[in-house]
Write a protein that binds this DNA or RNA. Structure first.
Lengths: 208, 208
DNA sequence: TAGCGAGTGGCACAGTGTGTCAATAGCGAC
DNA sequence: GTCGCTATTGACACACTGTGCCACTCGCTA
C-alpha cells in the first residue's frame, strides 16, 4: 500500500499505466514473433492481438523494431548509471566489466525461462532487428565514452577530442558482451553469461 | 587493350555494365543526400536524377540504404581476403591490424577529397543508415571469426564452439576501426586513419 | 525473318509510419 | 451526480518503401 503509494508519487499514474500497456504490447508481440516469425507479423496483427488500433499502437512504440527493442534502452541506462558509480581510481576495463553486472545477472536469471532466449535469437537472426539492436548498443557506446572522458578529466589525465582511445575501449568491452551473447546462443544457453563475458573480456585486454 | 580484354574475360560484359550503372546511381544519390539530406531524398528522386524508373533502380539496389552502403560489402570482402592471407604464425591482433591496411589506405587517399567525408558523416548521423552500417560490419565480424577459428585449427589450438574469445577479439578490432572513424570525423579529418587505428588498437590489446 | 533472353517500365499491392480531426473516457471542481 | 477540461483513442488520408507481375523493347542468333 505505502509502497504502491510512493511508487505512484515517484512516477505518476500516467507513466505507470503507459508502462503497463507497453509491457502488454511487447509480450503479445513476442508471442506472435516466436510462433509466426518476425517478418510475417505486422503491426496490424499486434494491434489486433492487444485490442487496439494500429494508430494507437504507434503512440506507444515508434517503430515495429521498437516493440521488441525499447526495453533495451532501460538496460543501457542501467549500465551507464552503474558505470558512473564506479570509483574513479578503478582501472577502466574493470569498471566496464562491473558496469555489466546488473544486466548479466538479469540475463542469467531470466535466460533459462520464458521467451528471453528465443527472442534474443530472433533479434540476432533477423537483419532489420539486428541492425537496430546494434544501433542501440552504439548509443550506449557513445554515452559510455563520455563517462570515461569525465573520469579521465577528474583524474587529471584527459584525452584529446580526436583521440580514439576511450571509444575504442568501450567498443571493445561491448563487443565482448555481444560475443558472449553469440557464444551463449551457440551453446544453447547452457553456460552463464557471467563466465562467458569474463572469458571474452579476459581474452581481449586492454593493456593497462 | 589486352588489359581490357582480360578484364572483360574475367568479369563479363554484363557484370561490368551493371557495376557502372550502380556507380552512377550511387554518385547521383550521394549528391542528393549531401545537398538535400538523406531522409528528404526518396528513391523516386534518385531514379529521376539518373533517368530511370523506380522499379528499375530497385533491380540494382535492394534498399535505399544499400544505394550508399553496398560498396562496403566489397571493402569487407577485401578485409576478409587480406586476413586470410596473413601468415598463420602471426599474432592475431597483428594479423587483424594488417588486414585493415587496404581499407585504411583507401580511406586516407580518398578521404580529403570528394564526397567521402560528408557521406561518412551522414552515415554515422542518420539512425537508419547507421544501423545498416553496423550490421554490415557485424557480417564481417562473423566471417572474420570463422577465419580466426580456421587459423587456430591449423595451429592445433582450436577454440570450443561456445568460446566467445575469437569473436570478442574480432569485435574489439572492428570497434577500434569504428572508434578511429569517429575520432577522424570529430577532428575534421585532419589526422590519417592509419595513425588513429594504430592508436586505438594499441590502447585496447589484447593480452598476448 | 523469327525467335530468344536480358533489361526495362508501368501497374497494383501490402506494409510502415505520420498528420489530422472528431469522438470519447477519465478526473477534478462544483 | 453533473459539468467541463484534458489526455487518449480510433478513423481516415497520405507519402513512401519494397515486391510481384506482365507487356514491351532492344540486341543477338539460328
Amino acid at each position: 500500500m505505502d509502497q504502491a503509494h510512493t511508487d505512484q508519487a515517484r512516477t505518476g499514474l500516467r507513466e505507470r499505466t503507459r508502462r503497463a500497456i507497453q509491457k502488454e504490447i511487447t509480450e503479445a508481440a513476442e508471442r506472435l514473433f516466436v510462433e509466426r516469425g518476425y517478418e510475417a507479423t505486422t503491426i496490424g496483427h499486434i494491434a489486433e492481438a492487444v485490442g487496439m488500433s494500429r494508430r494507437t499502437l504507434y503512440r506507444y512504440f515508434s517503430t515495429r523494431e521498437d516493440v521488441v527493442l525499447a526495453k533495451l534502452d532501460v538496460v543501457g541506462d542501467e549500465v551507464l548509471a552503474a558505470l558512473r558509480e564506479r570509483p574513479v581510481g578503478e582501472p577502466v576495463w574493470t569498471a566496464l566489466r562491473h558496469s555489466f553486472d546488473g544486466m548479466i545477472a538479469h540475463l542469467d536469471h531470466a535466460g533459462s525461462t520464458g521467451l528471453a532466449a528465443p527472442m534474443q535469437r530472433i533479434i540476432l537472426e533477423t537483419p532489420g532487428l539486428r541492425a537496430r539492436y546494434l544501433e542501440k548498443i552504439e548509443r550506449v557506446e557513445s554515452a559510455a565514452e563520455l563517462v570515461l572522458r569525465e573520469r579521465a578529466d577528474a583524474a587529471g589525465k584527459p584525452w584529446g577530442v580526436d583521440d580514439p582511445t576511450p571509444r575504442a575501449v568501450v567498443a571493445a568491452a561491448l563487443g565482448c558482451v555481444l560475443a558472449a551473447e553469440h557464444a551463449w546462443l551457440a551453446g544453447g544457453a547452457t553456460q552463464t553469461m557471467a563466465v562467458l563475458v569474463d572469458r571474452a573480456m579476459a581474452a581481449v585486454g586492454p593493456r593497462d
